[in-house]
């Protein structure tokens, strides 16, 4: 596994929750949105294990409905637990991201 995909693995759940918070999405749409956000090398299929895990944890719930034309779509909605988990995740992420960013930027320090 590349360094990048290892780093991503831990935060992908949070990214997916953040997208679903904005509006309910279905799998294909979700993978497109992740790629549009700049995570191009997340292979599209990766979203399904993540969606299953988030459902199992009760952070999202999916609703599969038949559509008159084309595919059935299973739309995912954020639950109250999911909102709490997302709040906590984004808080924790900031507490990590800010110091890590400044450490890894190197060089431009006054030392």
């Amino acid at each position: 596994m590349s360094v990048r995909s290892q780093l991503l693995k831990g935060v992908l759940d949070g990214c997916v929750l953040a997208i679903i918070e904005k509006e309910p999405v279905y799998g294909y749409e979700l993978s497109k949105k992740l790629q549009d956000a700049g995570l191009e090398d997340v292979s599209e299929g990766t979203v399904y294990p993540v969606l299953l895990r988030l459902q199992k944890n009760g952070y999202i719930h999916g609703d599969m409905r038949p559509s008159e034309s084309g595919p059935n779509r299973k739309y995912y909605f954020l639950t109250e637990d999911g909102r709490e988990a997302l709040n906590e995740l984004s808080l924790e992420w900031e507490r990590i991201a800010i110091p890590v960013t400044s450490l890894l930027r190197r060089g431009d320090k006054n030392d």
Partner: peptide, 26 residues
């Protein structure tokens, strides 16, 4: 069955855009 259906629908949509299963699921 729900996740299998989601994956199949995804694959069909991807196929229409010229992608292969290997590209989508690894």
């Amino acid at each position: 069955e729900e996740v299998l259906m989601e994956m199949l629908d995804h694959l069909i949509e991807g196929q229409n855009e010229g992608k292969t299963a290997r590209e989508i699921f690894g």
